[in-house]
Simulated assay, not measured.
Amino acid sequence: MDPDTLFVVGLGLGVLSVPAVVSAISRGERPRIATITLMISGAMIVWAITNKPGGYPLEQVPAIVARVINRFT
């Protein structure tokens, strides 16, 4: 899989799992699945960064997200 696509999917999973973690903690439950999803998201992002020559500069992240979304739409 393309590192850009994996990076964007990892970002998406990370963003979606944070509210699930907060919700589970506020209900007094353990956020098991949300934490696992957050860890998988982090692993995807780290893998994409290490396999992309030069990594991902922070100012290019919106352009990368837009490019990947345009590729699939």
Rank of each mutant, 00 (worst) to 15 (best):
A48W: 02
R30F: 15
G55H: 08
P19W: 02
I25K: 13
L6I: 09
V8A: 00
I45P: 03
T37Y: 03
R27V: 02
A66Y: 01
I33C: 09
G14M: 11
T35F: 09
P19R: 06
V8S: 00
A43N: 07
M39P: 01
R71M: 02
I49P: 01
V15S: 04
I40K: 04
T50Y: 07
S41C: 09
M44P: 05
N51C: 08
L16G: 11
S23H: 12
V65Y: 01
V18M: 10
G42M: 09
G12K: 02
A20H: 12
E59R: 12
V8K: 00
I40P: 01
S17D: 14
G28T: 07
M39K: 06
V22H: 01
P62L: 05
V8T: 00
P62M: 05
Y56D: 05
P57C: 03
W47Q: 08
L13D: 11
A66V: 05
G14T: 08
A34D: 04
I36P: 04
E29M: 10
V22N: 03
V9L: 14
I33S: 14
K52S: 07
S26R: 15
G28H: 08
A43Q: 08
I49N: 03
S17I: 09
I69A: 10
A63G: 13
N51K: 13
G55R: 07
V9G: 01
R30L: 15
V61Q: 01
L16M: 13
W47V: 10
L38V: 00
N70F: 05
N70A: 12
I40R: 06
S41V: 06
N51R: 15
I33W: 14
G42I: 05
V21E: 00
P19M: 08
Y56N: 05
L6R: 07
P53S: 14
G42E: 07
W47K: 11
G10S: 07
F7S: 02
V46S: 11
G12C: 09
I64Q: 02
M39R: 07
V46F: 11
K52Q: 12
W47A: 14
T5H: 11
Y56S: 04
V61H: 00
A34C: 11
I33V: 15
V18S: 03
A24F: 01
N51P: 05
A20Y: 10
I69C: 06
L16C: 12
S26N: 13
T35N: 13
V68F: 00
G14Y: 05
N51T: 15
S23R: 11
M44I: 08
T50C: 10
G12Q: 04
